[in-house]
Design a protein around this nucleic acid. Structure first.
Lengths: 133, 133
DNA sequence: GAAAGTGTATTATTCGACTGATACGGTTTG
DNA sequence: CAAACCGTATCAGTCGAATAATACACTTTC
């Protein structure tokens, strides 16, 4: 059973996207493997404090991406093969890092400064969690 | 007059936030300086193809952050002093980089790999701009 | 001073995200 | 078999983002 203990909801993006990314990253990291059971829609929605429909929407997307397999009546299972894992990994990496690089460049940050910030924050990722309104 | 020629709208976050961040980053980079004129609400909304109210919302936030000063009837002016610039710089840096670091850690990426990705993408920031749906 | 441009405010409307409640049919378990 | 659980679907409703259309008061410019 996939654990959502480390799932931390963040404002700014839809909840269903956050669930999708949480599972995607787990699959890439290997903490979520093929054969693992997804919590039921009702169980997970109660755990996260969101609506079952929101969880359903996330599962739908994960299914379309080849990460999850759902059979009416039974629990959904993770079915991500190595090809899918590799694809998701590239996707997330290029997208997330690309977003950061463009932002920092617009701020006039140099490559050296950018690398230093990432290197420094790697030890204290707690920073940057402040409210941003 | 502040130029919005390099403004690139991105889906995923509210338009008014994108406008705010565009100006914030310009102020940090120095491409937008104190005394610069903000385009009028109507002008900018027509240029970006959005509603005047959306631009107004962004300006309201920029004003509350001490970046912009508005006087009814006259054009809004940038009035960010060095203290504000420094504050915005720290905010954006910690927030953006922190977001990335947390995401990559969840993916099981090592510090070394993270630094390599940022270093590599610094030369080709075009990557990662694909649709993500 | 008059016209044009500007910031500000208001009301109504559309749209997607999210909630809440409920229902149906299939699977699992005892 | 029967109860409990599960995925799926639907409808109604709330909320914020964004649009659309006006209107008002002030400033700049000629």
């Amino acid at each position: 059973m996939i654990s959502f203990a480390e799932f931390v909801p963040r404002e700014g993006s839809p909840i269903y996207w956050q669930i999708v990314r949480y599972v995607q990253r787990g699959v890439v990291a290997g903490t979520i493997q093929s054969g693992d059971e997804m919590p039921s829609r009702r169980t997970l929605s109660a755990l996260l404090g969101v609506n079952p429909n929101t969880v359903q929407k996330a599962c739908r997307i994960l299914e379309e991406e080849g990460i999850l397999t759902s059979h009416t009546g039974a629990k959904s299972l993770v079915t991500a093969d190595e090809a899918v894992r590799q694809r998701i990994r590239e996707e997330l990496l290029e997208y997330d890092a690309g977003q950061l690089v463009r932002g920092l460049k617009q701020m006039g940050i140099t490559r050296q400064q950018a690398l230093e910030v990432v290197d420094r924050l790697w030890d204290r990722p707690e920073s940057g969690e402040e409210e941003r309104e």
